[in-house]
Design a protein around this nucleic acid. Sequence first.
DNA 1: TCACGGATTCGT
DNA 2: CGAATCCGTGAT
Length: 184
Amino acid sequence: MTKLSIETTGIRLRRNFFTRDVLEVAPDLLGKVLVRQFEDGSISRWLITETEAYKGEEDKACHANKGRTPRTEVMYREGGYIYVYLIYGMYWLLNIVTGETDHPQAALIRGLSKITGPGRVGKQLKLNKSFYEEDLITSNRLWLEAPIVNLRKYTSSVRIGINYAPDEWRLKRWRFSLNMSENK
DNA sequence: TCACGGATTCGT
DNA sequence: CGAATCCGTGAT
């Protein structure tokens, strides 16, 4: 018997959840249950509390704005795959690829219940390069489940850490934060 | 082959 | 406010 601190239905999210546009999926990821099975077999669950949308080659803040490269290749796949990359030489940031094939886009997981900050998320989940292109639909070490109660109230704000992007993209309110108090 | 800098965090 | 720490990317 596993004692769960997060209430999950145990039902894994399927492909069609992820193949929608990132501007639909990113806020819809809020309140979903992220599950990690570690090497020793132990399983941890968290609620997703904060996400950001990165959409297309036109989005100057999205890594895919450089086109297809070894790093961005996975973003061109259909939704449901993992895009991880090392930032500042020390943090593996977790992204979930969304949309249809050849529409490069992804949702950055910026926060989970009890874990604030994308760098800390990768650290707690013990992510590394081997998670690049992991399939959330079939993976036995990382996947998403539908919660029993779907929390829906959230706030939109500008994305963090992309001051290099021109205003047109820098000012888009594509950061989505679960509003815990209004969801009680 | 080289230099640059980043979707961050932590300590001073 | 600056260091940590590494590799993808674009230029040479």
